[in-house]
């Protein structure tokens, strides 16, 4: 039972990362019907930028530690948001009316460029996040250990997801985003600037991805230039699990996949976690290709 609960906590922690990153895939797919393969690499880039920022800011010596961490999050999110907007402008917008496959190839190209760019700047070796970024507190609840970073990750992720849900469901721009995901032409007829909607989607997706990237750095500590593929792929599977294009679906998919991998790691072997993840993916694609929440409502024509 102890192992079970401990793995649930670990699963929720990893699930937070998956959910955050999956939202970026799902929102872009929802509006543009495009798999943004470069999203995972943006997540990797955010970990590197975060590490550089932290080293620089902490090196100044006069900023209090909590403020440093907050600044690292804010500035990294901003930088990655700008990168996300640029990515859309350069790699996707010129191909908006081109066949879908062209955009997919462009996405793969962008992914490789970012990945190799990271390697060029920071080298191919593992960089290590300092251990003392966050306080090394941990709590012991009924035999289960929860560290400070685990609690912070889960709480921040849930707060971000609540904010996103409120924004998408209850604001004018949120409704415009949902409308653009359903029918871009009809959205234009409402006076919605679809280009602006797409830009906002990339900003939101990039910010969530940046937070995910920083979490990866701070939780696992070792980062490599290709971490975007590893976590991006898992987050992508999470998005499919929940129903790609569906925002609550990605949140649920992220946490379910996190729990799944953690329980496999706990009861089978962590070496097998990846293999089981792909078995799960294949099963979903066979049994319920639209994912858990995909395509709930039949549209009358």
């Amino acid at each position: 039972m102890d192992i079970f609960l401990q793995q649930v906590v670990n699963g929720l922690t990893i699930g937070s990362i998956y959910a955050l990153v999956a939202l970026g895939y799902t929102m872009v797919y929802g509006v543009m019907k495009l798999i943004n393969f470069a999203h995972g690499d943006m997540v990797a880039l955010s970990a590197y930028i975060g590490l550089v920022l932290y080293t620089q800011l902490a090196g100044l010596g006069f900023i209090p530690q909590p403020l440093t961490v907050v600044l690292v999050f804010l500035i990294t999110a901003l930088v990655i948001a700008i990168f996300g907007v640029l990515l859309e402008r350069i790699a996707y917008r010129p191909l908006r009316t081109a066949p879908r496959l062209s955009a997919v190839v462009s996405a793969l190209g962008a992914s490789m460029m970012i990945q190799n760019g990271i390697m060029l700047v920071w080298g191919p070796n593992i960089l290590i996040f300092p251990a003392d970024i966050l306080p090394a507190i941990s709590w012991n609840v009924a035999g289960v250990t929860i560290t400070f970073i685990q609690a912070a990750m889960i709480i921040i992720t849930i707060l971000l997801m609540i904010s996103l849900t409120l924004f998408i469901n209850y604001t004018k721009m949120g409704t415009a985003i949902r409308a653009s995901a359903i029918n871009q032409d009809a959205a234009k007829l409402m006076g919605i600037n679809v280009n602006l909607v797409i830009m906002i989607i990339f900003v939101i997706g990039s910010i969530l991805g940046a937070v995910g990237g920083l979490f990866i750095g701070m939780y696992y500590r070792g980062i490599t230039f290709n971490l975007g593929w590893v976590y991006g792929l898992n987050a992508f599977i999470a998005a499919i699990l929940g129903g790609i294009g569906n925002i609550p679906g990605s949140m649920i998919g992220g946490y379910l996949l996190g729990l799944f991998t953690a329980l496999i790691a706990g009861y089978v072997s962590s070496a097998w976690a990846e293999a089981f993840t792909f078995i799960l993916l294949i099963l979903i694609l066979i049994v319920r290709p639209t994912g858990i929440l995909g395509e709930r409502v039949a549209e009358k024509v």
């Binding site: 409704t175 949902r178 409308a179 359903i182 029918n183 009809a186 959205a187 007829l189 409402m190 409502v297």
Partner: peptide
């Protein structure tokens, strides 16, 4: 071309 997965009211407000 109504937005099928939005409510009638949301469509009107859009």
């Amino acid at each position: 071309q109504v937005f099928g997965t939005l409510t009638v009211e949301e469509n009107i407000r859009l």
